[in-house]
């Protein structure tokens, strides 16, 4: 990949979507589109990150995000190591900053971090010399997820301007929702939120989105319905009475989807709670579900982010 990307995003870190401008986003998505083509070839190898070290530092368990970053790093020729911290030093009382300083001494070039505390990636970035990529911090941001969602949608619609997108479900605990709201709005989409009030931030109306508590109203005229995972592990109080009541009013099934535009597409950041926020019939229908495409976009977007950050530091 020797192509140059105008107004390229160069970092020094990717901590969130907030703070990115349209040109930076477009350049990342352009780059990712090229990597998407590479990933569909038999030889998927590039050496953009040859000789560089990527550390995947996961303080929260993750399958898809971690493997996506691992694959992205390896396809670009980086040396990749995965650190799942739960069992490691933190159990012995080491703090996040201690861990950061220790890893920094090993001279990594790229550090991908996921942590349960909002702001953890930003804190880490102040203490290390390498590029930090936020792979999810608490309920704050998950920027590569939003970028892969945008890439997936761009592949279908081209320009997102004027497209109506409903984000449904557990917004209050969701870092995906925060990043998506900022990014999709930046790309000109009309974003709506739909959830019971206990799963919405109190100030959601101030975020430049329309807020609904009823799915058939929310989905009216929507091009895309994005369903969020009900994050029961983050809930500290009773936000919903039961999964069956939740499914009855907010779970996406064919009947509710009928309110959306004909041919509307469905997304989910995974992992799914089938029968809770989404009906299997919808999730598994290749005509309307973009869920597997989202996973494919994920690798390409992460390759784009890693390559751009590495280029920015060269």
């Amino acid at each position: 990949m020797t192509k140059s990307y105008k107004d390229t995003f160069t970092g020094p870190h990717l901590l969130g979507i907030a703070g990115l401008n349209r040109l930076e986003v477009d350049s990342l998505l352009d780059r990712a589109t090229d990597f998407m083509k590479l990933n569909r070839q038999r030889n998927k190898h590039s050496d953009v990150l040859g000789g560089q070290t990527l550390i995947n530092l996961f303080f929260e368990p993750s399958t898809r995000t971690q493997s996506s970053f691992e694959l992205a790093g390896k396809r670009l020729g980086a040396d990749v190591i995965n650190m799942a911290i739960k069992s490691s030093s933190v159990a012995k009382g080491e703090t996040l900053i201690d861990t950061a300083v220790t890893l920094n001494a090993m001279h990594p070039d790229l550090l991908v971090v996921r942590h349960s505390a909002s702001g953890a990636a930003a804190l880490l970035s102040q203490k290390v010399d390498c590029a930090v990529i936020n792979a999810g911090d608490g309920s704050h941001e998950h920027p590569t997820q939003a970028l892969l969602d945008a890439l997936t949608l761009r592949a279908h619609f081209g320009d997102l301007a004027g497209r109506r997108i409903a984000i449904c479900g557990d917004v209050v605990h969701s870092r995906v929702a925060r990043s998506d709201i900022i990014l999709l709005s930046l790309l000109g989409a009309e974003v709506r939120l739909c959830a019971p009030p206990t799963l919405l931030p109190a100030s959601a109306e101030e975020w430049g989105v329309e807020v609904f508590h009823n799915m058939s109203e929310a989905l009216k005229g929507c091009d895309v319905v994005m369903v969020l995972r009900l994050q029961r592990e983050r809930m500290t109080s009773a936000c919903v009475p039961s999964t069956r009541e939740y499914f009855r009013y907010y779970g996406l099934d064919r009947a509710k989807l009928r309110a959306a535009k004909k041919g509307a597409l469905v997304m989910h950041p995974g992992p799914m709670n089938r029968g809770v926020e989404i009906d299997s019939e919808i999730a598994d229908d290749p005509q309307i579900s973009l869920i597997t495409e989202q996973v494919e976009s994920g690798v390409a977007v992460r390759m784009a982010v890693l390559a751009a950050l590495a280029e920015g530091r060269a």
């Binding site: 309920s139 870092r175 109190a202």
Partner: peptide, 11 residues
């Protein structure tokens, strides 16, 4: 509690 806390993802 308020808009700023929601944006930061803090309780």
């Amino acid at each position: 509690a308020g808009d700023f806390a929601s944006r930061l993802g803090l309780g």
